[in-house]
């Protein structure tokens, strides 16, 4: 390259071949350099060399990339919801086995205390306690054996970017006219991106809507403790 530079320096057009090949010269400079090429073999060789590489890459792109449709990119988003009491209880069984077991034991103990406190009370109260305990005590094991994703499916929302709004594809736009040193044996194919669309959203661990704690699902953990308190309060009232 040093040698090339020395050669070009002799003619006063050093470094302009690249601008010329990529058509990034002002019109008058392009005309002047074009005229110079007819008289300067060094610059003509330089342009030929750079163009050959550039066109080889362009051919690869036009054959291998341009016909490809743009993929549909999907980014899952979590919508933050306040968990219901039932969802909170069910959420316990989506936790890892040890966490769910501990939670189940805790809940069963609470129910036991509730029943003891209410022993001898009116029959309708006992029935109510049994119903409250049933989701945790009687939920079948498969929920624990096959834990679901930390984020419930109904909390995941995909937001589709409007396909109709698609503007002209900048990459697939028609190439600018430029000096061609290599003849193509077939015309460029336009990119086929009619089917693409942008899709957004997220429930990724780093997302601010899903704070991380030991077991995940902070809102549900909070909800659980609140409900246990409620349960004790209810027992005391009775």
């Amino acid at each position: 390259m040093t040698q090339d530079k020395n050669k070009k320096a002799e003619c006063g057009y050093a470094g302009q071949a690249l601008d010329f090949v990529y058509d990034e010269m002002a019109a008058d400079a392009t005309a002047a350099f074009g005229g110079h090429l007819a008289a300067c073999t060094n610059c003509a060789d330089e342009v030929s060399s750079l163009s050959a590489s550039s066109l080889a890459v362009q051919e690869w792109r036009s054959e291998a990339f341009d016909p490809l449709a743009t993929p549909r990119f999907t980014i899952p988003v979590v919508t933050e919801k306040r968990a219901s009491f039932l969802a909170g209880i069910l959420g316990l069984f989506r936790q890892p086995l040890y966490a769910a077991s501990a939670a189940g034991l805790l809940l069963a103990s609470a129910v036991g205390i509730y029943i003891l406190v209410n022993a001898g009370a009116a029959r309708p109260n006992v029935e109510r306690a049994a119903v409250s305990a049933s989701p945790a005590a009687a939920t079948p094991a498969p929920s624990i054996e096959t834990p679901k994703p930390a984020i419930p499916d109904d909390d995941v929302e995909e937001v589709l970017a409007a396909k109709e709004d698609k503007t002209e594809n900048p990459v697939a736009a028609e190439r600018r006219a430029r000096t061609r040193m290599i003849k193509r044996d077939k015309p460029l194919r336009q990119s086929n991106d009619d089917t693409h669309s942008g899709t957004v959203a997220t429930n990724e661990p780093g997302a601010k809507t899903v704070p991380e704690d030991l077991f995940g699902e902070v809102p549900e953990t909070r909800d659980r403790s609140l409900r246990l308190t409620d349960l004790f309060a209810e027992g005391e009232e009775d």
Partner: peptide, 24 residues
């Protein structure tokens, strides 16, 4: 500010170029 559809527009604007960059 938690408007995921705004990011959807960014994806739509840049998806072809980013895909081209990754392909190259």
């Amino acid at each position: 500010r938690d408007d995921p559809e705004a990011f959807g527009e960014i994806v739509r604007r840049w998806e072809r170029k980013i895909f081209a960059l990754c392909f190259g």
